[in-house]
């Protein structure tokens, strides 16, 4: 059972890292700030949640799961709010169009 959990955890963590790499590529190559923000917030929160879940599976203990879930929820929450605030300031700059 724990070997299966370990493999599932490694798979989840790999998917999370791939998503973070895609987010980094998006920030590198997308043209405008708002589109970069889009790639960053979506892929970062999803990638981090997958990595947290994978780490909890590899670890196998309940208190680690709770701490990692709290970490992922906080990062997703603050990432969403910060994305909203940054997009808001950029959109109001383009007002005259």
């Amino acid at each position: 059972m724990s070997a299966v959990l370990y493999v599932i955890g490694l798979g989840l963590m790999t998917c999370g890292v791939v998503l973070l790499l895609i987010a980094a590529l998006g920030v590198w190559s997308l043209p405008s700030a708002v589109s970069r923000l889009h790639a960053l917030t979506k892929a970062d929160s999803a990638g981090l949640s997958l990595i947290a879940l994978g780490a909890a599976c590899v670890n196998g203990r309940l208190d680690a799961l709770l701490a990692l879930v709290l970490c992922a929820v906080l990062v997703a929450l603050s990432g969403a709010t910060m994305g909203h605030l940054i997009a808001r300031s950029h959109v109001s700059e383009d007002e005259p169009e």
């Binding site: 929450l77 603050s78 969403a80 709010t81 909203h84 808001r88």
Partner: peptide, 16 residues
Amino acid sequence: ALGELMLPFMRVIIPV
């Protein structure tokens, strides 16, 4: 003024 999302964010973050 930081918009409508700030108050729900604060309601979660400050107790945490």
